[in-house]
Amino acid sequence: MTTLYDFSAQDLAGTAVPLARFRGQVLLIVNTASQCGFTKQYAGLERLYEELNGRGFAVLGFPCNQFGGQEPGDAEEIASFCKLQYDVRFPMFAKIEVNGAGAHPLYRWLKGEAKGLLGSEAIKWNFTKFLIDRDGHVVERYAPTTEPAAIKPDIERLL
């Protein structure tokens, strides 16, 4: 059976990160963008990370430019934006595609494990969120409109 731990992704510095590094943690995986109507959710995601990280929780951010060109920057610009605007401390990864032929293997797996509205696998917009349990399995998929604070009770149940 495939789990999150079977994948790796590049961080913003271009270093390959085996996601097995997060084994045993509860994770919230989010496709992000710096020029999106939902960008303000960075603040809520960081708040969750700060509050729950000591209990074995992390947020993993995956910038994506597939929705309205809302993440046009390069890795350095993304890192700078996240730090200066939201003081993001949770792990951020290199920009990826989440849909189509070029979709990152992690996102192909996530979408297959937790379908969206009306059973669709496609990610509809930035800030779609996937909750992962301590065993590396997808527990839930949340719409971009779901505020991070609304997910906190589900995260705490898994901690």
Rank of each mutant, 00 (worst) to 15 (best):
H104E: 02
H104N: 04
A43Q: 12
A150T: 01
G68A: 11
K115L: 15
T32Q: 02
L118C: 14
D6L: 10
G100F: 04
L48H: 02
R23H: 15
L117A: 14
A103W: 09
G24M: 01
F22G: 02
S80H: 15
V26W: 05
E50R: 15
R21F: 01
Y42F: 10
A114S: 07
A79R: 15
T2W: 03
I155V: 15
G24Q: 04
G100I: 07
Q70K: 00
M92E: 05
R55L: 12
R157F: 12
E140V: 08
E121I: 03
L12N: 01
V138A: 05
I123W: 14
F57R: 08
L117F: 15
N99S: 08
E140C: 10
W109P: 00
E77L: 00
G102Q: 11
L27W: 10
A101P: 08
G37E: 02
P91M: 08
P105Q: 07
M92H: 03
G14T: 09
F67K: 07
I29V: 12
I151R: 03
N65T: 00
G73R: 10
K83M: 13
Y49T: 00
V59T: 08
Y49D: 10
M1Q: 12
M1G: 07
Q10R: 13
G112C: 09
L52C: 10
E71M: 03
A9V: 01
G116R: 01
N99E: 07
F130N: 12
L27I: 00
R47T: 11
N31I: 02
L45V: 00
G112W: 06
A58K: 14
Y142E: 11
I132M: 04
Y42W: 00
R108V: 02
Q35Y: 09
D133R: 06
A150Y: 04
G54I: 11
D135W: 04
A33P: 04
F7N: 09
L45H: 06
H137S: 07
F81N: 12
E46C: 10
D87R: 15
A122L: 11
P144M: 00
I155N: 00
F67S: 02
Y42Q: 00
A75M: 06
P91G: 12
E97Y: 03
L117C: 10
W125H: 08
E76S: 11
I29S: 07
A75V: 14
K40G: 14
F7K: 09
E156G: 05
S80I: 03
A20L: 11
H137R: 11
G44E: 05
R55K: 13
Y42S: 01
D154P: 01
P148L: 06
A75Q: 14
A101S: 10
L28Q: 04
L12V: 12
A79N: 04
S120R: 15
A114F: 09
P153H: 01
Y107I: 12
T15D: 13
Q85E: 15
Q66V: 05
T2N: 06
L45P: 08
N99T: 09
P144S: 14
A143M: 15
S8L: 00
K83F: 13
L28W: 06
R141G: 03
V17M: 04
Q85I: 06
Q10I: 07
K40I: 04
Y5A: 02
L158G: 06
R108H: 10
Y107V: 09
F127N: 08
F57I: 13
M1V: 15
G136T: 14
L28M: 02
